[in-house]
Design a binder for these strands. Structure first.
Lengths: 235, 235
DNA sequence: CGCTGCGTTGAGCTTCTTCAACGATCGTGG
DNA sequence: CCACGATCGTTGAAGAAGCTCAACGCAGCG
C-alpha cells in the first residue's frame, strides 16, 4: 500500500525533480486519507492548514450558492494537488472539496511543506507552473461564463475534451450530466435540452455518456473558438 | 524620470526582499513603455514574451466575446505586475490588456526574468503569493458569475470596495459605470437599472460616480456574503 | 460649436431557470 | 434474487432575468 503512494508522489508533476530522500521526508510529514464517495474533504472558508494530492479516485472543487446550487471549479484526478494555493498563502479555502468517488488523497500540512519549499527551488518552480496553468484555466472559465451562452460553453467543452483525447470524434463523458451541467455553470434540465437540440440539428449524437461529434465545423462556430484555440487549450 | 521607476520597482510586492543590485539589473534587462488611454498593450493569444509592471495609470485585462462584448478580468494599478503567469509558463496571453488612462508600464522580458527567478528564491515565493491571491480572486469571480444575479454581484462589489476603503459608507467609483458593468459581467443598461432600483429601495444613494450605502444590512443580504466574507475579501 | 462617448430609460424578446411529473438505472437490503 | 429507494435524466409549461435595439440628455473636448 505505501508503495503505491510512493510511486504516485514521485511521478506527480509537483514533485518532479525532487530527490528521493525528500519524497521519503514527504511521507513522514504527510499522511494518506480516505474519503467515501460524496464525502467532504474541506469547506469554503475553513483555514487552509494544508493541502492534498489525489492518490486515487476523483475530487471536485466547487462553490455553493445561497440557494444550494453548485458550480464546479475544477475536477482533479490522480497526481494532481488541490488546496495548495490557499495553503501556501495561509488563507481560508476559497471553495469546497468533496470526493466524487471513493478516493484517497495524501495530506500535506502547510508547515512541513513550507520547509521543503524553501529548501527546494525546483519545487517552487513546479508550483508556479501549476498555479499559472490554473490561472489560465480560470481566466477562460470567467470569459466563457460571462460571454458565451450555454450552447457555446458546451461546444467548447466537447471540443477541448476531444482534443485532449487526441482529436477523436467519439467521446465518453467521465462525469454525470448533472455534474457536467454544474461544471458549465447551468442546471441539468438546460443541459439536457441543449444536448437534444444539438442532436436534432445533426451536430452530435448522444447515447448515454457517449457523445459523437458529427459536425465539427458547426460545433466550432457555436463554441466561438478558432482552430488554434482548440489546439492550445489542451491542458 | 528613471528615479521614480526605481522607487516603484523597489517598493512593489513582487520584488520585496530583492537586493538593490538586482533592481539595478532589472532596469537593464527591462524597459519603460508608455501607452495612451485605450491603447492596447497585448492581445489574447499572442505569445507571452514578457510581462509588465504598472508604473503609472491603470491597466485592464479583459476578454472579448465574438460579438465584441467585454469582460474585465482584472484592473491593475501602480506596482502590480500583469501578464506574469503567461510569461512564466511561456504560453500565449489568456486575455487582452489595454491602458485605461495614459499609463506607463515597465516591461520585463521572459528570458531575463527567468534568470532572476532561479537566482532568487525569495522572488519565486513572492510570485507564488501573487498568483495564489489571484487564483482566489478568480475563484470568487467564477462563483459570483455563475451563482449570483447581477444585483448580488453589484452588492458584493460595493461591500468589498467599502471594506477596502476602511468601511466608509461613501464610495467614489474609480471606473466608469460602463467599465463597472463589464467587470460585473453585465452591460451598462442593466447596471443602470439596478442602481436606480436599489436607490428607489433606499439601499444606496447615487450621485454620478459617488455612491453612498444607506442600508448595509440589506446590501449584505443581496450580496449573499456573511460579515466574515466581507472582512476576508480585502485583498 | 459640434462631435463623441457615457448614462439613462423604454419596449420587446431571448435565454435560462423553476416547478412538476415521469421513466430508467443502480445499489442495497430484505 | 428481487424489490425498493435514491439518484439521474428527460420533457413540458410558466415565469424571471437580462439582453438587444432605439431614443435621448448630457458632459467633455477638440
Amino acid at each position: 500500500m505505501p508503495l503505491a503512494v510512493n510511486e504516485i508522489l514521485q511521478s506527480c508533476f509537483l514533485f518532479k525533480g525532487l530527490s528521493g530522500s525528500y519524497i521519503e521526508q514527504l511521507k513522514t510529514i504527510g499522511k494518506l486519507k480516505s474519503f467515501n464517495k460524496k464525502e467532504a474533504i474541506f469547506f469554503e472558508g475553513e483555514p487552509a492548514k494544508g493541502f492534498y494530492i489525489v492518490v486515487s479516485g476523483k475530487v471536485k472543487i466547487f462553490k455553493l450558492s445561497s440557494e444550494g446550487r453548485e458550480q464546479i471549479l475544477h475536477i482533479f484526478a490522480q497526481g494532481e494537488p488541490f488546496g495548495e494555493a490557499a495553503a501556501f498563502a495561509d488563507m481560508p479555502y476559497p471553495a469546497n472539496a468533496a470526493a466524487m468517488e471513493n478516493s484517497q488523497a495524501f495530506y500535506i500540512p502547510r508547515t512541513g511543506f513550507e520547509r521543503l519549499l524553501k529548501e527546494n527551488p525546483s519545487l517552487s518552480l513546479n508550483l508556479l507552473a501549476i498555479l499559472s496553468k490554473r490561472l489560465m484555466i480560470f481566466a477562460r472559465m470567467i470569459g466563457d461564463l460571462s460571454l458565451k451562452e450555454v450552447p457555446g460553453r458546451l461546444a467548447t467543452y466537447l471540443l477541448i475534451s476531444s482534443a485532449q483525447k487526441g482529436g477523436t470524434n467519439s467521446l465518453s463523458l467521465d462525469l454525470t450530466k448533472t455534474q457536467l451541467a454544474s461544471l458549465l455553470g447551468t442546471i441539468p434540465e438546460t443541459l439536457s435540452r441543449i444536448l437534444s437540440r444539438m442532436q436534432k440539428a445533426g451536430i452530435i449524437e448522444v447515447h448515454g455518456a457517449d457523445i459523437t461529434i458529427k459536425n465539427r465545423g458547426e460545433l466550432q462556430k457555436i463554441s466561438g473558438l478558432t482552430q488554434d484555440d482548440v489546439g492550445l487549450t489542451i491542458s
